[in-house]
Amino acid sequence: MQKVSTPLPEKSVEHDLAKCKIDHIETYLYDTKRIESGVIGIIDKSMCGLMVISSRNMSGFAEYFIPIENRHFDLVQWAKVFMKLKGVSIPVALDIVEEKDKLGGPIRTNLAKASLMDLASKLRNPAMQREGNTHISWLDRAVLFDYSQAYFSC
């Protein structure tokens, strides 16, 4: 049998992820009074929001709930630990996140890990960004700002 073509070189997805640096991190704190939700009992005793981590014009996101004792919550103080992740590759960011107490607790650790894993999935399969993103209008910054009471970006 005649060899018709040479096989394509194997592409290392993890190697490609190592080249993807985190360009931007955004954290939104929702205005719970503006959110229509069936979880009013939970929202009354917690703060909730969204984290968006971006690289190469793709974004990974995850939502969070933070139980609170009083209604005063400083998003900037809470979210500034994520600045450690900006400018590093996704595998390095995951290493930072997985180090014990590097981000100051399980809520921030799980939030960053979920956002990074979502971003990595979309970078591995760019079609996911288009096909799987049924919440595209929700990720519109204007809508997010309308439904947020605080914002942090780095």
Rank of each mutant, 00 (worst) to 15 (best):
S148C: 06
L116G: 05
E99W: 01
D44A: 11
M117Y: 14
G132H: 07
A79S: 15
D31G: 03
S54H: 03
D95Y: 01
N125E: 13
R108M: 07
N57A: 01
D95E: 12
Q2L: 11
T32I: 13
V4F: 08
F145I: 08
L8S: 12
P126N: 03
E10R: 11
N133M: 11
K100Y: 07
R124S: 14
I22P: 13
K21H: 12
F61D: 10
V143G: 04
D44Q: 11
D146K: 12
T109P: 01
R124K: 15
S137N: 07
S153H: 12
R130V: 14
V13K: 14
K113F: 11
K100G: 00
K100C: 00
G105W: 04
M83L: 01
T134F: 10
L75H: 04
V92P: 00
A18Y: 11
H135N: 12
E10I: 15
Y30S: 09
N70Q: 07
A79E: 02
G38Q: 14
V52T: 08
V39R: 13
S5M: 13
G49Q: 05
H24G: 00
L103C: 08
E14F: 09
K122R: 15
D146Q: 14
N125G: 02
C154A: 08
H72Q: 13
P67K: 07
K100F: 10
E98Q: 12
R56E: 00
Y28I: 02
I107F: 05
E131L: 10
V88F: 08
I90H: 01
K80S: 05
S148T: 11
D44M: 02
S54N: 07
K21S: 15
D44G: 05
I40P: 00
V39W: 15
E99K: 13
K21L: 15
K100M: 01
V81M: 01
S137W: 14
K122N: 01
I40L: 10
D23N: 15
I107E: 11
V97I: 05
K3Y: 07
E98V: 01
L123A: 03
F65Y: 09
A112E: 06
P7W: 06
C48H: 07
M58F: 01
R71V: 02
T134H: 04
H15W: 13
T27L: 15
S37E: 10
L111V: 04
E63V: 06
T109A: 10
F82I: 02
K33R: 09
D95P: 01
L29Y: 08
P126F: 00
E14G: 04
S153C: 13
G60L: 09
S115N: 06
K102E: 14
S89T: 07
I42C: 04
L119E: 00
S46P: 03
L123R: 06
H72I: 10
P9C: 06
K100E: 14
F152E: 04
V143F: 11
D140M: 05
P126S: 02
D74E: 08
